[in-house]
Simulated assay, not measured.
Amino acid sequence: MNTPIIVNESTDKKAKPSADQLGFGKYFTDHMFIMDYDSGLGWHDPRIVPYQPIVLDPAAKVFHYGQTVFEGMKAFVASDGRILLFRPEKNLRRLNFSNHRMSIPQLDEEVALEAIRQLVLLERDWIPAEPGTSLYVRPFVIATQPALGVAPSEQYRFIVILSPVGAYYAEGINPVSIYVEPEFVRAVAGGVGNAKTAGNYAAGLIAQQEASRQGYSQVLWLDGVHRTYIEEVGSMNVFFKVGDTVLTPELNGSILDGVTRDSVIRLLKHWGIAVEQRRISIAELVEAQRNGSLTEAFGTGTAAVISPIGELYWQGEKFSVNEGRTGDLSAKIYDALTGIQRGTEPDPFGWMLELSRA
């Protein structure tokens, strides 16, 4: 598709919230990107328009059969005014992986990236500059064909919206408490657990509610077959420092291939720290906690970057990790990643895409 992106600028600009009001995903910028798909025509009509509600037929397939995927990435403004995106190419490759799994037509990743580039630059005044803040980029695809019947849609819409977000933690990174889910499962190999699709998150809400009711911040999921092996924590990948080695569950077909996960693994190897990607049982983890070899645990994801784990609850027993404190390695990873993202630290991996200079 070589059609240029049409830009229809808003004439009714919103007031921008202050950095201390941002929170996460509460405010949205003045514009959005839209592109449509029709069977036989392909993706067409790329456009940037004023932010607005989506009008869909009640029979649109996204409502009935859940054909939808999404991504999350961040844009930053460096101290010298450069606008930077963190690893957008990997996010867009994963978006197309999710598209394939959900029978959604592939997107031209170069077109999608150009759309994000133009949209972010148009909204550059919305990018907060305070420490811990960023502009969250949410691309997603929905099935729009108005037809009942279990079959892939013949029409889709690709949309990108932007949201200025504040620091995920108001007072630095603080350890969270984790509830190991004993009943519900997140996904199994062959399912859609390794796709970033809405149903994965809807299915996890009931477990999250129970965890919150018992005073825990997140859910640690076990595998759906044996109910033994660790998979993810909430909507994040998870890591454990046991002795001198960092362990993380291997990508087994039911775990999301997280961009932050991959970044952490590459950072650790760059620092000469041993990393193992393999099956990790909850019994092995409990034993490591009991013998003192489990010294740190943390989740990784776009929103929080690093989320230290201070306590695990499993089968009626609480297991403290690093006496409930943020570990040195967790803090080092957080500082390194956020420094690379904001352009204050060297980027030896070439992760940051520069959209413009001051």
Rank of each mutant, 00 (worst) to 15 (best):
A167D: 08
L107G: 08
E232D: 00
L329E: 06
A198K: 05
I142F: 04
P139F: 09
E250C: 14
T260F: 07
K196H: 04
D20G: 08
E130Q: 07
A331G: 04
R94G: 06
S177G: 12
Q155G: 06
G191V: 11
K16E: 06
T302I: 02
L220A: 07
L312M: 13
Y229K: 13
P182W: 12
F298H: 00
S103E: 02
Y313H: 14
A75R: 10
L135E: 04
P308L: 06
G66W: 04
S330M: 10
V233P: 00
T3W: 12
I116W: 12
P131V: 10
S263Q: 03
L355K: 11
I282T: 03
N174P: 01
V219H: 01
S134C: 03
P131A: 03
D38W: 11
E231K: 09
T245A: 13
S153C: 10
K74V: 03
D347W: 12
D36A: 14
E232N: 02
L92Q: 02
V111I: 15
H100E: 15
F184P: 00
S153M: 08
L222A: 09
V321R: 12
D12M: 11
Q218M: 14
R157S: 09
A203C: 12
Q118K: 15
T326L: 00
I255K: 01
P164Q: 08
E114M: 12
G190F: 03
Q106G: 06
Y216W: 13
N99K: 05
W271V: 07
F28V: 11
I178C: 05
S212G: 05
F70E: 01
D57A: 14
K269A: 11
E276N: 09
G292A: 05
I54Y: 08
T228H: 14
R290M: 12
T3D: 09
E71W: 08
E89F: 09
V219K: 03
F76T: 03
G172T: 05
V137E: 01
I282W: 04
G149Q: 13
R157Q: 15
I265R: 05
I230P: 00
A202D: 04
V219N: 01
Y216A: 06
R357S: 14
Y65E: 07
V62D: 01
V188Y: 10
D45I: 08
Y51G: 00
G243K: 06
G42V: 05
A60V: 11
A59G: 00
E183S: 13
E181Q: 02
P146S: 11
S281P: 03
N252F: 06
S39P: 03
G243D: 04
L312G: 05
V233I: 15
V321M: 01
P346Q: 11
A304N: 11
R325L: 13
T29M: 07
F239R: 06
W271Q: 11
S235M: 10
T29I: 08
A358D: 09
I265P: 01
I333R: 10
E171K: 15
I116T: 04
Y216P: 02
D257N: 04
P4F: 09
R138S: 06
Q208I: 12
W271P: 00
D57M: 04
N252S: 15
Q208Y: 05
L247E: 08
P182T: 08
T29C: 13
Q155D: 03
Q315S: 11
E345N: 08
F33Y: 15
R325N: 14
N91E: 13
S293H: 08
A187P: 01
V305W: 03
K269S: 13
Q145L: 15
R342T: 15
A129H: 13
F158G: 02
S212P: 01
P88M: 10
